[in-house]
Design a protein around this nucleic acid. Sequence first.
DNA 1: ATATTAAGTCAGCCTTGTTGACATTCCAAG
DNA 2: CTTGGAATGTCAACAAGGCTGACTTAATAT
Lengths: 166, 166
Amino acid sequence: MDRAHSSGESLLFLTDAQLRRAIEAMFFAYRGFTADPDRILARYGYGRAHHRAVHFINRAPGRTVTSLLAILGVTKQSLNRVLRTLVEDGLVEARVGVRDKRERHLYLTEKGAALEAELSEAQRVRMRAAFRDAGPQAVAGFRAVLEAMMDPEQRSQFDAVREVVE
Amino acid sequence: MDRAHSSGESLLFLTDAQLRRAIEAMFFAYRGFTADPDRILARYGYGRAHHRAVHFINRAPGRTVTSLLAILGVTKQSLNRVLRTLVEDGLVEARVGVRDKRERHLYLTEKGAALEAELSEAQRVRMRAAFRDAGPQAVAGFRAVLEAMMDPEQRSQFDAVREVVE
DNA sequence: ATATTAAGTCAGCCTTGTTGACATTCCAAG
DNA sequence: CTTGGAATGTCAACAAGGCTGACTTAATAT
């Protein structure tokens, strides 16, 4: 069997150099990915941790702290520090649960939603431009590789995030 | 002109939901991307910053500090802290320049090369698996989108990194 | 009743980034 | 041959955002 013409799906003869290139692309691209939000966040005195919280609260309003913890994969203490400033600054509201009063359900305020919109718009603009440059065929491949790169736990969080709404 | 059948290249009608999905994929995938190296680094008492330094020194042995600074995009002080521990621990050697004695040319020692190999092998294994799962067509698309996502400066660093060797 | 869960808090630590100031060494240009 | 600027390194101080461990409070579940 000829390696170069092996049966499509099964075997990919990626050289170490090709893989290394992909690894470095991932490194540099992630910097691009975070660059715009970082600039915006800096203006408000926030960091990436705030962005992540705001993003996933917006994604499923009413989400509990525990649920957010699972998605972000950080400690309670770490998240709490971020959440506290967001609540203090009036970007996030934490409502006591109706059914279960131990729970705090998180919501963005108008102010919080405005920041989220600004951040995600910036990120979408870059993403849209990248997809446009790369061409239509690239979109599916990009997503397929990224999703295959996740750990199982991350993957299930990724899936869970869109189960509710979409 | 029909939007759905617009001339291939030009217009992509990606919904905000699709873009958001890509953004979240990027977030979760990056965690997968760094998970294996992080575990290895922790065993040696190092962090991601050490990984990055070791990676790019290995990439072009003899690289100067300034060149490494440009690639990593951090401050001299920040890099120096990392570099110092690597030199102290005998993973990196800093040789004074022959032509220009102000410069320090960085090289991995055998020990440093061993760590680099362990880290990059782990990362390649995951990358290779992701490409295998995603299929051959996905590889080109993945890279195209990532490269389009970089800032111009990052992009030129990305290109410069492989100019020498490949 | 008691155990467990959800949330929050205090204290302390680490890594990795930042600024600012400054010293040294050396190349290059006037 | 002096002087300006580049490359490097270092000290100090600070901040964000991770972490562990210990502990409290309130409320649900068994």
